[in-house]
């Protein structure tokens, strides 16, 4: 299957008065059509910046330092704003975390979805536009769309707002959808509905999705593949099964062990010690070394390369080096398949 999106050795930095913040450091991954890739990591690890840099939605202070972004084989790394404008919404589209701030409070939901449709198809007649808006609202599971298209965002609950945002994102039939923590602001019950909706829509339209989240439970529900990010780098990437049942990176072990569901009956929850490093001056060697109880001497010296585990599973840890000592993952560090 051809790669829809390919990111090669991408590095993105913010130039602020405190210095250069290396938000994304040498990230490579690819996305096939119709696939769901989850980006997991703590806040500040560069998940959102990675998505926004692909869509070129970053502020002026950010710069792509190196690397390339290929979409359908075409290099869009150096596209100007005018060219990007044509791609946004049609090729890729984004759903943000907080639906209240991404909707206009002074416009009705129907108008807002209609606006998104008109941007892509300006010549649409009024009836056709209305039909398309109703179709989109039905697609994202808003019941009785005729009644509801005249309502304003404040009439909607959080889950309904997120559905409306999704309808806007899907207005241009994008090939890739970036969902940046779309369910973080929602309740568990609503979250489950929205996740099912996303999967459903993704099956119907075949949209490839990059799903940014910090909740591994959510990942288990929606993702085909998972990329774990730490301090601006992808430290482990593989299929969902590989990441959950056979994780190789100590950081992934830590994330899985920190889940309360896996600490049942224990006295304390496992917490990864320490804090993520600042990205102004990333530490030498492996950025995770100082929080890593399995760190080897070389972790403080040199950054580990990506070691291949299987055809689809890669991890950046020196533990996979043939010279490394044998380490058994901690209990709870991987979920036993069964």
């Amino acid at each position: 299957m051809p790669e829809l999106l390919e990111v090669k050795h991408l590095s993105v930095s913010f130039f602020t008065h405190t210095g250069e913040v290396q938000a994304v450091r040498d990230v490579s991954f690819s996305l096939k059509a119709g696939e769901v890739l989850a980006l997991v990591g703590e806040s500040g690890c560069g998940k959102s910046v990675l998505c926004k840099s692909i869509m070129k939605l970053l502020p002026q202070t950010a710069k792509i330092k190196s690397g390339s972004i290929l979409v359908n084989g075409a290099d869009i790394t150096h596209y100007r704003e005018r060219d990007m404008h044509k791609l946004r919404g049609r090729l890729f589209s984004m759903v943000f975390q907080d639906p209240m701030t991404s909707l206009n409070p002074a416009m009705s939901i129907g108008e807002q979805i209609g606006e998104a449709v008109r941007v892509h198809r300006p010549r649409l007649s009024r009836e056709a536009l209305r039909a398309r808006v109703l179709e989109l609202m039905a697609l994202v599971g808003i019941d009785r769309p005729e009644e509801r298209m005249g309502l304003y965002p404040h009439h909607f609950s959080g889950g309904m707002r997120q559905r409306a945002v999704l309808a806007i994102a899907l207005a241009g039939d994008p090939a890739i959808l970036f969902a940046d923590e779309p369910t973080t602001a929602l309740d568990v019950t609503i979250q489950a509905q929205i996740l099912d909706l996303l999967r459903d829509v993704q099956h119907k339209l075949g949209t490839a999705t990059v799903f940014v989240t910090h909740d591994l439970g959510v990942v288990a529900r929606v993702a085909d593949r998972v990329a774990v990010m730490y301090a601006g780098k992808i430290v482990e990437i593989g299929t969902a099964e590989e990441i959950f049942y056979d994780p190789r990176h100590p950081y992934t072990w830590g994330l899985l062990r920190a889940l309360p569901a896996l600490s049942k009956g224990r006295d304390t929850l496992y917490a990864i010690p320490g804090m993520p490093p600042t990205l102004v001056n990333p530490p030498r060697g492996d950025a995770f070394a100082c929080r890593n109880e399995y760190a080897l001497a070389i972790d403080y010296q040199e950054e580990p390369p990506m070691f291949q585990v299987t055809d689809t599973h890669y991890a950046a840890t020196w533990l996979l080096d043939p010279r490394a000592p044998e380490v058994t993952p901690p209990s709870g560090g991987g979920i036993h398949a069964g």
């Binding site: 019950t189 979250q191 439970g217 529900r221 969902a240 099964e241 959950f244 569901a261 896996l262």
Partner: peptide, 15 residues
């Protein structure tokens, strides 16, 4: 319903 909505961090069981 509330308890059943908690996602389980286990892809096969969760799906």
């Amino acid at each position: 319903a509330l308890l059943s909505a908690i996602p389980i961090p286990d892809p096969r069981r969760e799906r």
